[in-house]
Amino acid sequence: MKSIIIKNLVKKYGQLTAVNGISLEVEKGSVFAFLGTNGSGKSTTIGCITTTNKINSGNITVNGHKVGTDDDLIRREIGVVFQTSLLDDLLTVRENIASRAAFYNLDIDINARIHELSKTLDLDVFLDQRYGTLSGGQKRRADIARALVHKPNILFLDEPTAGLDPASRENVWQTIYDLQKKSGLTVFLTTHYMEETERADMVYVINNGNYVASGTPQSLRADFSHDKLKLVGIRHKELVASLQKDKIKFSVKNDAIIINVESSKGAMSLLKKYESVIKDFEFVHGNMDDVFLELTKQGEEA
């Protein structure tokens, strides 16, 4: 069952092509991470899916409803957390959520719903505090509550942790993943913090509006990133010479020699082999940062 299906989406702003023919499918109940540098077309794509940007060509279906013709239905079934805070600074969190709830003409008890959201998202402490006085992390949780007020089954988050300190970031992610697990919500998010995509079910990378790669975090890591061994020789020249003699590929950064290795085992055998000429070493696991840098570099060269 697919929550979102995009086929050949093209979005242009005048001469500029912001999104150039991307296609993707998002599995119901999954966490889908949309990855790209600033200006790569992530927010534009979210805008198209959430019915606020007009599409030049291609088509999008959300829960089986077609964007452009069933916009009203789609809007009832999605929740959106924007990059910047869009709630009212001078209203309390409770008032903010209540005023936005009115957009949906819900026939439920709003107060009960706010209470429920407050419990799930842990808003109790600041529920009656003015939004403008909240910390960044608190604001984000209030934003998520607003996006969920009408019980949507897809939640869009456009860089939800941009500008937050690490502790708040972790807190926001925990909240999102808990929600997703508990309620089976489909989560579509964008981020430029690579490590945040590690927990996603699916990662989709775009660059300059073009598709670059997609897959699970594990498969992307396997394909595009390598574990690295950094070595510092007792005598630099001597180490370089022995590596060259054994035809081992390496690069040099400052005084350190960097070798791509397949696994920690490979690293160990290298360490054993050159033990006598090594002063210090460091082993670095491949991560999503490498994947991202590798992929966007390829994109630029292409």
């Binding site: 959430t50 606020t52 009203d72 809007r75 924007f82 910047t84 869009l86 936005r100 949906y104």
Partner: peptide, 13 residues
């Protein structure tokens, strides 16, 4: 000025 219209636009109002 604060782009709040976007929040209205994703709602069925």
């Amino acid at each position: 000025a604060s782009d709040r219209f976007k929040d209205f636009a994703v709602s069925p109002i």
